[in-house]
Simulated assay, not measured.
Amino acid sequence: MMNAQSMKEALRNGQRVYGTLITSPSPKWPAHIRQLGMDFVFIDTEHISQDRHQLSWMCQAYKALGLTPIVRIPSPDPYTATMVLDGGADGVIVPYVETVEQVQALRGAVKYRPLRGQKLERLLNGSEECGEEMNRYLEEYNKNNIFIVNIESKNAIEALDDILQIPDLDAVLIGPHDLSCSLNVPEQYDHPLFLQAVDEIIMKARSYGVGAGIHYWIGTEQQIKWAKRGLNMIIQSSDLNAFIDHLSSDFDTIKTALGDQAVPASESINI
């Protein structure tokens, strides 16, 4: 386990951090998750329906137990980013980012809170200085905020060098499903085009001192493979996938032993 400041430093210096996707808002979940030896939890609001009040409770509970809550917001919207941070998230993952302009706007939301509007725009474009006192305030106010963007399209890869040069970016997170679709090789995770893209993202991110992660939900081989290539933000599976996979295996074992026909397990849920 680690706090947000430690995780931010780890992402940038290449130290591996471990987490999983949490979909359940059950109040029993955080204490049990804490026993698994992970560093953070990934809470998705892009594909999973989470009430704002419920999401805040989840973030506060995990944070109180020493796990860093990272929330993926539904869209590249700066106001949504500040909302989840106000609710207790330690970090924001921004989905389907493709341009420098998007990253700059989100950088303002995550690293320059509580500034907004035209003043924030002038600070980000360099036309205004905020002064030594305000700089100290903003640095202290946002020192624990982790800023991560999803790289999951061909366009994002083409803009990656420029994106990685934007200050304050802590990590990039590869979205395997969307990336494979963007490359016209849907769900072909062993296709040379997909493998080349993942390798390029990891290598470039690490060369800029930015963390690199991927969210896999099937097996563990890919996580190990890419970690050996420099990937250091490992998000493995989800509570829902783990439940289905484990229980499916148990029932298959029981039914086979009793001579009943086992039902083939459905594919893992892609989130």
Rank of each mutant, 00 (worst) to 15 (best):
A4K: 04
E9D: 03
L11P: 02
R12F: 09
G19S: 08
T23P: 04
S24R: 02
R34W: 14
I48Q: 09
I48L: 10
I48N: 11
D51P: 05
R52G: 07
H53N: 11
L55D: 05
K63E: 14
K63P: 05
P76N: 10
T80W: 12
A81Y: 07
V84E: 01
G91A: 09
P95Q: 04
V100R: 12
A109C: 05
V110L: 00
E121K: 15
C130F: 00
G131P: 02
Y141H: 14
N142M: 06
K143T: 05
K154V: 02
D161T: 15
D162C: 12
I163H: 01
L164S: 06
I166Y: 09
I166V: 14
D170R: 06
I174V: 14
S180W: 03
L183W: 06
Y189P: 02
L193C: 12
L195E: 12
I201N: 02
A205P: 03
G213W: 05
H215Q: 12
E221Y: 08
Q223A: 13
I224R: 15
R229K: 15
L231T: 01
F243T: 09
F243H: 13
I244K: 09
D245I: 12
L247Q: 12
T253S: 15
K255Y: 11
A262W: 13
P264Q: 04
P264S: 06
S268P: 08
